[in-house]
Simulated assay, not measured.
Amino acid sequence: MSQKDKAAAFGALHKKGNPVIIYNIWDAGTAKAVADAGARALGTGSWSVAAAQGYADGENLPMEALLATVKSITAAVDVPLSVDFEGGYAEEPTELARNVGKVIDAGAIGINFEDQVVGGSGVYAIEVQAERVRAIRAFADALDIPFFINARTDLFLQEGDRTKHAGLLDQAIERAKAYAGAGASGFFAPGLADEELIRTLCEASPVPVNIMMMPGVPEPRQLAELGVGRVSYGPGPYRAMMAKLKEDAAAVFSAAG
């Protein structure tokens, strides 16, 4: 498929009540393994891609290294690839759009794009983030690619006390509507775990909602019943693989005396 066809196919996979499953990968090898396991689409996780190359999350991985990883993945597999692009490695909309253009040139058909202030605190004002989304949409549309912008809010991740998440829901819904109006294709709410809050968000959001699997989050089948359109696994697969690697290595060294 062409990049345009891959982007269209990826968007079509997002169905309320029948979510696409993204088992996040971090390099060409894991991309091939997950694709061979039956994935219809792939997505990187920024935490995993950075950790695999010895960096901390939060745009500490040089963008050139990220782009090289994206190119190696898209060269190795034919399924659509979405890239976790964090805050886009820029604040100003024009520079941000240029950076996204580099991700598109590397072969990706979508991104996760978060509203937290990378390297700072809190989240961008709704109007500011909406303008940033609008710049990405305009750039991708000019290339005639139905690029999937998965607009992420960090409201719930930044509030570790889940009993306070209900008080953030109205703001999250406002952001979902604003980002969708600016051209976002989906709305990503990592950290949200409460079933009724997820259901309410899915009902109110104009675009498919993405929920990330983490402790306390309902299983994918339950998320489908709540109306979720995308389920992702974030850094979970990387952490599980590294834990198994350490366990196996420790067993070898222990047996060797």
Results as ranks from 00 to 15, higher is better:
residue 1 M to A: 13
residue 1 M to H: 06
residue 2 S to M: 14
residue 2 S to D: 14
residue 4 K to E: 09
residue 5 D to L: 12
residue 8 A to D: 12
residue 14 H to R: 05
residue 15 K to A: 00
residue 15 K to L: 07
residue 15 K to P: 04
residue 22 I to P: 14
residue 24 N to P: 11
residue 26 W to R: 03
residue 26 W to G: 10
residue 27 D to I: 12
residue 30 T to E: 09
residue 32 K to N: 13
residue 36 D to G: 05
residue 38 G to V: 07
residue 42 L to C: 12
residue 42 L to F: 13
residue 43 G to Y: 03
residue 45 G to D: 15
residue 48 S to D: 14
residue 48 S to T: 07
residue 49 V to S: 14
residue 50 A to V: 10
residue 51 A to H: 13
residue 53 Q to N: 05
residue 53 Q to V: 09
residue 54 G to H: 02
residue 55 Y to C: 05
residue 56 A to L: 13
residue 57 D to A: 06
residue 58 G to W: 07
residue 68 A to R: 11
residue 68 A to L: 08
residue 69 T to R: 01
residue 69 T to W: 01
residue 70 V to F: 05
residue 71 K to L: 05
residue 71 K to Q: 13
residue 73 I to S: 15
residue 77 V to A: 04
residue 77 V to K: 00
residue 81 L to N: 09
residue 82 S to C: 13
residue 85 F to K: 04
residue 85 F to V: 00
residue 86 E to T: 00
residue 88 G to S: 10
residue 92 E to H: 14
residue 93 P to C: 12
residue 94 T to E: 15
residue 97 A to W: 04
residue 98 R to K: 15
residue 101 G to I: 07
residue 106 A to L: 08
residue 112 N to H: 09
residue 129 Q to N: 04
residue 129 Q to V: 01
residue 131 E to I: 12
residue 133 V to L: 14
residue 133 V to S: 06
residue 138 A to E: 15
residue 138 A to P: 11
residue 139 F to S: 06
residue 142 A to C: 04
residue 143 L to N: 11
residue 144 D to R: 01
residue 147 F to N: 10
residue 149 I to G: 00
residue 150 N to S: 11
residue 151 A to K: 06
residue 153 T to R: 01
residue 155 L to C: 12
residue 156 F to K: 00
residue 157 L to S: 07
residue 158 Q to M: 15
residue 158 Q to R: 14
residue 159 E to C: 03
residue 159 E to D: 03
residue 160 G to C: 02
residue 161 D to L: 01
residue 162 R to K: 12
residue 162 R to G: 06
residue 164 K to W: 13
residue 168 L to D: 01
residue 169 L to S: 00
residue 169 L to I: 00
residue 170 D to W: 00
residue 170 D to M: 03
residue 170 D to E: 13
residue 175 R to V: 00
residue 175 R to G: 05
residue 176 A to F: 11
residue 177 K to R: 06
residue 181 G to P: 07
residue 181 G to L: 04
residue 181 G to Y: 02
residue 182 A to N: 03
residue 183 G to V: 06
residue 184 A to T: 09
residue 185 S to G: 08
residue 185 S to Q: 02
residue 186 G to Q: 04
residue 189 A to L: 01
residue 193 A to N: 08
residue 193 A to T: 11
residue 194 D to Q: 14
residue 194 D to V: 03
residue 198 I to K: 03
residue 200 T to P: 00
residue 205 S to G: 09
residue 205 S to F: 08
residue 207 V to N: 05
residue 210 N to P: 08
residue 211 I to A: 03
residue 211 I to Q: 02
residue 213 M to A: 10
residue 215 P to T: 08
residue 218 P to K: 04
residue 222 Q to S: 14
residue 223 L to S: 12
residue 224 A to N: 12
residue 225 E to Y: 12
residue 226 L to G: 07
residue 231 V to W: 01
residue 234 G to F: 09
residue 234 G to K: 10
residue 235 P to Q: 03
residue 241 M to F: 11
residue 242 M to S: 01
residue 242 M to H: 11
residue 248 D to W: 13
residue 248 D to Q: 15
residue 248 D to H: 14
residue 249 A to H: 09
residue 249 A to R: 07
residue 250 A to P: 14
residue 250 A to S: 15
residue 251 A to F: 06
residue 253 F to R: 15
